[in-house]
Design a protein around this nucleic acid. Sequence first.
DNA 1: TCTGATTAAATCGCGCGCGATTAAAAAGCA
DNA 2: TGCTTTTTAATCGCGCGCGATTTAATCAGA
Lengths: 141, 141
Amino acid sequence: MSQLTLPDMICFALYSANHAMQRVYQPLLAPLGLTYPQFLVLMALWEEDGRRVTDLGRALGLESNTLTPLLKRMEAQGLVARARDEQDERQVRVTLSEKGAGLKAEAGHISRCIFDACGLEVERLTALRDQITALRDRLAG
Amino acid sequence: MSQLTLPDMICFALYSANHAMQRVYQPLLAPLGLTYPQFLVLMALWEEDGRRVTDLGRALGLESNTLTPLLKRMEAQGLVARARDEQDERQVRVTLSEKGAGLKAEAGHISRCIFDACGLEVERLTALRDQITALRDRLAG
DNA sequence: TCTGATTAAATCGCGCGCGATTAAAAAGCA
DNA sequence: TGCTTTTTAATCGCGCGCGATTTAATCAGA
């Protein structure tokens, strides 16, 4: 069998599609002063506020060595607050500020732009998402 | 309609699947002293050696601000050589060293490990790859 | 109660990825 | 020929992402 080339590889498809996605998000998030990972953190907090760093890490698939500096930058921008848990001082709870919570209003518009850029009907996009998620879980498992 | 959560979003599926993929590659590449993007560059050069930085950028979807430092690191490791083109001194040709070319022998084993980790039959994996690639092209287009 | 193990964040260093800019070579054109 | 425009890499700064380690709090067990 002849050697695989870049376009043949599922890994490169994921790699390049992920970059393409982030490039679509960038001009939508820049006016809000957000990076793409910061937007994902906001998503997680809009769903459930006051999570611990570990919880955010589990939701996003990231470790504290990535999240701590990222959350500090978000705190510096007044998007979230970070505070040690009263019961367990090892843990840090991350809470949305008014500004951070307010940005949720923009999320709908952004999601619609992304959906349009995907150029697929909802059913096909959902099916594709589920296949990619299932692949991720097998890779991580 | 209620707000989308992280697992609902195709963007997060791509983001997390891409990370999961790189985490599978990492222990396979580390013994060769390669990072994942460096492996992709080698893939591109195994397919066609002596490409210009621009050509590699087009193949990988990257700019010179990413590639130049990456290629310098690969040159420092003796994987490739970088040389200005004789005809057009603006361009830099990247050529595989013997060491860089030799690593191709390991690629088959790595690809097989990745395929196994995906846990899908070839037909399904190919179909998924094509859908992801098509999505990427719509996002980039 | 004290001591060692475990857990949660934080810290450090390094390699991407990219927006913005710069430097230099080549191409286009009066 | 000279001058401008375009093309190609390189440079710079910053934000991730992560392997490795550290610090501090909590837990478990004698």
